[in-house]
């Protein structure tokens, strides 16, 4: 048996609220996970256990869903999230070169940088095809990138958002 970790009262309350909101809605598990992730930034194991207990759904089933869909994360993210677009339009305009450049700067797909500042996700099409190749830092889109101006962009971003 896994060791039971403590979960704060606050978190517990928030989860209860979410579960209450969706009680009686048929097939709401995905919507619940969305709401939880929005609240906590990712899906902590302890929270999934709590949901499992409350909904009387086996943890394995919840874990199965959380890992099936790429939108759900089981690990926390960096302070700022880079989403590199790997959609077709960006790809044919050189998104792979951007990925190489990011890797040379020490970032890895799905991982948080050592200092916890950036994490890198590869995403399918952020809809900024006219600015391809593009990426998002948090909610902001940056387009028409090259490995060179990308390097500068990240340096400037760090300076502006210490």
């Amino acid at each position: 048996m896994a060791v039971k970790l403590k979960i704060s009262e606050y978190a517990k309350n928030e989860i209860e609220k979410i579960l209450e909101k969706f009680s009686g809605v048929q097939g709401s598990l995905i919507m619940i996970l969305h709401a939880v992730q929005e609240k906590f930034g990712f899906l902590p194991k302890e929270v999934l256990e709590l949901i499992s207990e409350e909904l009387k759904v086996p943890l394995s089933e919840i874990y199965g869903i959380a890992t099936f869909y790429s939108y759900f994360r089981l690990e926390p993210q960096g302070k700022h999230v880079i989403r590199l677009c790997m959609g077709t339009a960006c790809y044919v305009k050189g998104a792979a070169d951007l990925l190489t450049a990011l890797e040379q700067m020490g970032l890895k797909e799905g991982k948080v940088s050592e200092d916890g500042y950036f994490s890198l996700d590869l995403v399918r099409c952020i809809g900024a095809c006219s600015m391809a190749p593009a990426l998002m830092i948090d909610e902001e889109v940056y387009g028409k990138l090259t490995p060179n101006n990308l390097k500068k962009l990240l340096e400037d971003f760090r300076k502006e958002n210490p």
């Binding site: 709401s28 598990l29 995905i30 869903i65 759900f72």
Partner: peptide
């Protein structure tokens, strides 16, 4: 929640059902 296969109708239905 980010699964391309859900564009397929039977997969989509499973996803609407929360699976």
């Amino acid at each position: 929640a980010g699964a391309f296969v859900c564009g397929e109708e039977t997969a989509l239905i499973a996803s609407v059902e929360g699976k």
